[in-house]
Design a protein around this nucleic acid. Sequence first.
DNA 1: GTGAAAGCGCTAACAG
DNA 2: CTGTTAGCGCTTTCAC
Lengths: 337, 337
Amino acid sequence: MTTLSEVAHLAGVTSATVSNVLRKRGKVGEQTRLRVLAAVEQLGYRPHLTARALAEGCAPTLALMVSSIANPFYPEFALAAERAARENGRFLIVCNTNDDPDTGRAYLDQIAGTLSDGVLVMNANLPIDDLKKTEQRGAPVVLCMWEKPDEPPELSCIAVNFFEAGAIAGRHLIDLGHRHIGALVGSKANGIHAERYRGYLAACTEAGQKHVKGRTRYVEDAVDAGYEGAKALLEAHPKLTAIFATNDLPALGALNAAADLGLTVPQDISIIGITDIQWARLSRPALTTVAVPTNSAAEMAVALLLERINHPSQTTTMRMTATPELVERASTGPAKT
Amino acid sequence: MTTLSEVAHLAGVTSATVSNVLRKRGKVGEQTRLRVLAAVEQLGYRPHLTARALAEGCAPTLALMVSSIANPFYPEFALAAERAARENGRFLIVCNTNDDPDTGRAYLDQIAGTLSDGVLVMNANLPIDDLKKTEQRGAPVVLCMWEKPDEPPELSCIAVNFFEAGAIAGRHLIDLGHRHIGALVGSKANGIHAERYRGYLAACTEAGQKHVKGRTRYVEDAVDAGYEGAKALLEAHPKLTAIFATNDLPALGALNAAADLGLTVPQDISIIGITDIQWARLSRPALTTVAVPTNSAAEMAVALLLERINHPSQTTTMRMTATPELVERASTGPAKT
DNA sequence: GTGAAAGCGCTAACAG
DNA sequence: CTGTTAGCGCTTTCAC
């Protein structure tokens, strides 16, 4: 480990000067600058990020809280967030809360403000009070996917119009002539799924068609759960010609359920999801879904977080992503007549 | 931000004592201990990880280098690695190299030894020389998936018997009576895929059956590439009754290609992959594959890395994971006669 | 048992 | 332009 002062020694200057040339701060004579640079090169000096962070009073990382990075939606978000962070000189620490508030709190207590300058919160089942507490301790928090643009939370956030996403999905099905639609709704405590379901319901109402409560199944946000839910739905309601799922994972499960039940998609049954994860276009048939702007949400979240870090006085703000858009693939088609 | 000395002040002691009670080091009177603890509680004190790291001369994070966390295989590994790291008091920084050696080198130069105490390297296209250099600078490196147990690299590693994985896949196909087998081989520079292919080839030879070179396609490690490769293969060789892929992603692509070509799996064509990623059991038909012990590899890698960090003198070592195992699902069956 | 003091490697005034 | 100095928050040796 070569240190600043070793470089300084070699270059015949003091560490402050070396720091200056490296940070391009202050005035340094061209001669010394070159000498210092040569010494840096010769010794293979690399700044000690931890020491620098301590001296600058600002940590070099951002934390990303997710329930599990293994959930297929998060890696895509994490990739974009990491890239954005990196472009701003920050590294990304991934924290898997496993949906356990205690685990999440432990992370926050340990790293927020001491190792990470700010926290990106993806759906990770963290009590808002804990988040507000970490904000108060000086580590800004940004909620990456807020679902109720009409009700800004008490924290900065990137809002996605999930209500509209649900409505778009609903309208798509209705436009295709579907009158008997089943719904697979995420059962998580957070409102993300509820909002999408509300949007779908609104689309039905708007079309003068009411969704029958019995045709809704609340399921975990996972392929298996979607599979079971769809199977139950399809067996209980043979007349269903379409299934609306609040998320791609259950929708993908529904695709499998239909296949196992001997139903052809989309001839016998249409299936639509929301999000447009990687696998949506890779399933057979490819899944029709309403795409959420994941990448830009990640970039916006990182940008907002950095603003809050750099301007602590900045007031809590909410920003909207672009509206989700229908991605029509092969899993939806005209209703059987 | 409450600091040690603020706590010390409140408790009427010095910061050294507070540090002692918190670290459970040295001797501290029961009275003072309680007083200190009360002060910590009252002020909501949390140790500043960056400062601690600097003082201890040991960084609180481990770095995980992957080409892209969005590649479906990595999140599962990352989850297990993060858990293992966390159990040992370390946080995990995810570094996406995008398969670009320059990006990778930039990461290594910046964080190895300064922000991260050690580096886990998953397939990320990093020149071994760069890795050796970072080792020399004092940051241990562990290769997480080494493919040639017979040829230990010059770095510590967790070795997986990929040759055997390929052989298992080959034997499975042959046992099912397949005589006309196509191969989809990953084309990455690294030897991971080559080793699997060699294993497969060995299984063929062993069975007195030789694989026809023309029935091999080299493809990127992705669903799309596997799709195209399989399609080409199937169109060029109508007599094929099975496809061996060196990885699950191309195998999953082959599944789609077969479907689009109107072939039924496994009646018309059997398909097998290697790895057993999450999606393998979720595809329809579910993919038969040879499971690589991902979780234990991650745990072993973290354990080995920590050993090397704690005992810098320890010699470069290689450890084997358990042997990959066949997971028979629905994508393989008896050869058509 | 507890405190004083030095130092981890770097940055940031402020002098000169 | 360059050096001196004083920390950042914590750990740790060594006196008392």
